[in-house]
Design a protein around this nucleic acid. Sequence first.
DNA 1: TGCTTTCGCTACGCGTCGTAGCGTAACTTC
DNA 2: GAAGTTACGCTACGACGCGTAGCGAAAGCA
Lengths: 211, 211
Amino acid sequence: MAPRSPARTGRPRSAAADAAILEATRAALVDLGWSKLTLGDVATRAGVAKTTLYRRWAGKNELVVDAVAALFDELELPDRGSLAADVEYVVRQFAALLDRPEAKTALMAVVAESTRDEPLRARIRDSIVDRQKRLVLVGRARAEARGELPRAQGAQDAARSADLIFDVVAGAVVHRMLVSGQAVDSQWVHGLVALLAGGLPSAVSPLPSDA
Amino acid sequence: MAPRSPARTGRPRSAAADAAILEATRAALVDLGWSKLTLGDVATRAGVAKTTLYRRWAGKNELVVDAVAALFDELELPDRGSLAADVEYVVRQFAALLDRPEAKTALMAVVAESTRDEPLRARIRDSIVDRQKRLVLVGRARAEARGELPRAQGAQDAARSADLIFDVVAGAVVHRMLVSGQAVDSQWVHGLVALLAGGLPSAVSPLPSDA
DNA sequence: TGCTTTCGCTACGCGTCGTAGCGTAACTTC
DNA sequence: GAAGTTACGCTACGACGCGTAGCGAAAGCA
């Protein structure tokens, strides 16, 4: 690969500045939220000149995507023993991430912007969405190995069903927290797991396990 | 009630101006998108003074919510004969709504803003979210009457499961279209309906009805 | 005929944007 | 070590949208 073929001489860009800018962006998101965040303020917080910031990012959208994408590095899916437990784990993990004020205010905003900016959409997909979708693939492979789910017939069907599951699970969590504005508590998570396991009838009448 | 007790004399506000402003807002959303929309431009398009606009709406957020909320007036749920058909109908209807450029760019943006603005969240809930949720209640009541779903035991459980279903269905559609950026086509809708009917196993291995 | 409120218009201070220009710092190559 | 190249900090700038104030005129009530 040739990721850095142009410009191999001269003073290199400061990696410390990159880290400081992204950290300052997250801090500014917490303090000000998306709409009141200004690049001048971020530059001041990071201790760099505003021009330095503009040399590396085209604008607010790209900067915030990169700043928030780092939060998704910690996503993982250890084997919890069953499909239901795996689903519950990943849902709680995603909910905890969305509970952070910097993620809450930024994610929806950049997605909204991406509806009119195809390169931005691609950036979000590469650095955020695909990283989440990987967890679905891992969980589904495990469930197949356990015999909890039938093996997909063909790579195309496998990809389609994975996309569907991803949109349903991630979409439900996002909608619950940001649109309905309610907490992802145990009761809700168990209801969602029941729905995924057995469909609507299972969700409407949950097992009478808890009083 | 006393909705208009203050100010009952003097020149009344022009209802035509209200309609023109909201229509101009939707047109501006189509042309410019959320981020580049300016109130001055909306005022010019509507043929009113900028000050008139500010006398009626506190800012961009509130104006856009009202402008987009009107799109949700046409939502309805005729009896399609079965739970699956009702779900498919409402999903397609919501997807068609989200396909409009003015809705696409505005809905996510105002939801993002609402994470740091509680009154705005309440306005969104009253004028948009609750209007969607009503369809879920209608569809569930019909399914119960048909015997497709067990009757909810207690009003609290009924409300909880309705909220869950709403977040799953609406969240899935929104996530599919705006985050994954893919179309809500027949294949996807049928997969979602299968998942809601029978859970993940049904979604992974769809009925071999189509070649 | 007054009284009250809204309307269109103009003008303003404020803050952010994104860029240009400069001198300096850091690193590579010869 | 010297020359060349690129990044950096700093300052300054025009452009633009924001949200408000003040005015005279218009439209409806008493």
